[in-house]
Design a protein around this nucleic acid. Sequence first.
DNA 1: AGCCTAACGGCACTGCGTGCCACACATCCA
DNA 2: TGGATGTGTGGCACGCAGTGCCGTTAGGCT
Lengths: 222, 222
Amino acid sequence: MVAVTAVTARRGRAEVRRELVAAAVRLFTERGYDETTVDDIAGAAGVGRRTFFRYFRGKEDAVSPDHEQGLARIAEVFATAHPTEPLRSVVMRAGETVFDLYVADRETARMRFALVHDVPALRDREAAQVHHYRRLFTRELAERLADVEDGALRAAVTAAAVVAAHNQALRHWLAGGGTADGVEACVAHFRKVAWMLPLQAGPDIDEVTRRLEKVARTLEAG
Amino acid sequence: MVAVTAVTARRGRAEVRRELVAAAVRLFTERGYDETTVDDIAGAAGVGRRTFFRYFRGKEDAVSPDHEQGLARIAEVFATAHPTEPLRSVVMRAGETVFDLYVADRETARMRFALVHDVPALRDREAAQVHHYRRLFTRELAERLADVEDGALRAAVTAAAVVAAHNQALRHWLAGGGTADGVEACVAHFRKVAWMLPLQAGPDIDEVTRRLEKVARTLEAG
DNA sequence: AGCCTAACGGCACTGCGTGCCACACATCCA
DNA sequence: TGGATGTGTGGCACGCAGTGCCGTTAGGCT
């Protein structure tokens, strides 16, 4: 196995990682998730079984390996945002940043979407990842709404709404074929949620909420 | 093992199930999740390892076994709701119904909360369950908002907001000690979210949304 | 050349989850 | 009363995920 070892050493870590992801997605799609073992994936990528676990925490992680990166991007948007930028705008920018990760390679995104849609284990896995996004948004928002009445509740609700809208827009885009110009429509679709959020930058949020509630109450009564 | 078999046969399925849950929660808390094997749980409950898997799909399910029941309750609220009842009211009632499942046995709820908070595997498991709640709400709402502009988006956002508010209220209640009278405060806390929802019963929803947006825009500009 | 670090492959081990079979008990029927 | 059927159980064996450990090899540094 000297030749194989030499070839392996020649490949960089990023390349091996890509090949493992490609092999995993291909085998899961062709043969099914449960019917594919880690040995199969590693073998198809030309590495040993033990090496697979040096790149991914487990079998499920090979399908969506850039989750940490998405979290980091969101955190960065919040960290580098100018203090005077409206919170609504920061939230929208953070959400839109994640789109790029999926738009980067549409074909992989579509295969992943189909896989996650079909395999229960991967569905739950994705739910947990979405949960992490939601938690991050909630934490960042709660920090900035600390002085607002029901700030924690408002942060939780807003974060959940943003993440849900993001996923809804993404699903809408993938269902529409995942075309390049569809990205515009996707982002526009996502932006519609901005006015649904119980969110306002600055200390006038309580006043806004009161007036909004009054309007809604009046309309519902009529 | 004739004696043990006789005793086991005497116990009903519900009783065995309760003992398995109790043993699992106790051992997970005392010894840690990863340090507790299925053999330990089964042994502590006086049954064989194979029997454990006849009651639960896996090790994680022994902590929160009444998930299906919660889903069924929500579905029932939606199914039996009177057509003229405002959608906002139905959503709130469905959410509040799930509270009862947790309030039923506070002590177990608190231990489960602590466990889920500590163990990553259980956190992800709970995230997946919350995801199921969200999906159910989304489906029911989308059905009823089919004729509304951006009904699917509105359903997704509203469902996520409701579930998030529910969890936030539940966490708030458990953090406050889980007292009986705290349930009132918990539900009241949950109800605050009603006016944050982009939701309105009847065909006037678009008009309401337009007016709300106009108010918000005016206030944000000023 | 000799050393040193990083990455890899192989091996063995624990534990989860499942299929299979034998056994105990409860019920029904002749 | 004695035998057939059905249900719940324990034990056994197996495949596979994930981890710890160790020997090996490639590539860089002095």
